[in-house]
Amino acid sequence: MSSQEIVFVVLGIVGLGAAVRLVTARNVVHAALYLVVSLAMVGGTYLVLAAEFVAFVQVLIYVGAIVVLLLFSLMLTRAPIGREALDNQQRGISALVALGILAGLAFLIQDAFRDARIEPDATPTGAVGVSIFQNFVLPFELVSVLLLAALIGAVVLARKDLP
């Protein structure tokens, strides 16, 4: 097991553990903090996979922006504490479904990629930028318009004096 793998496994276990705690936590604020941990670990795996720009964006946007947004909305809405308040009646079947999906994916992964190896290649941020602005200019512009629309939409939806 290479050193990269060891780091990855550690990150992965912490991330998965945080994710599991996220979906079982009885306090919504704790859940949000577990989400931070989980997302940060995912960002770490990007670093191990030598995708540094994606890792930074992950930390900036997810941990920095999205989680803060989630915390704000938790603050603005009443957030009761306790399992019954946060979970619905179909925990059992949900767990079954989730395990079923996991089993299916695991089977497929085993079947298709058992011997595949990654040799992470450093991808400088400049290369990502060049790729975005050479090959993906149109999608990039579209995404920016989408963001703008979402921004305006969110403002319109959430403001108090709806026309």
């Binding site: 619905n88 179909q90 079947i93 949900s94 479904v97 079923g100 999906i101 299916g104 089977f107």
Partner: peptide, 20 residues
């Protein structure tokens, strides 16, 4: 909605099993 989502995912699993 969540009940519907359960149906959705069960359907996905069944489809995946069927196809494999």
């Amino acid at each position: 909605v969540q009940r519907y989502a359960v149906f959705l995912f069960v359907g996905v699993i069944l489809l995946a099993i069927g196809i494999s």
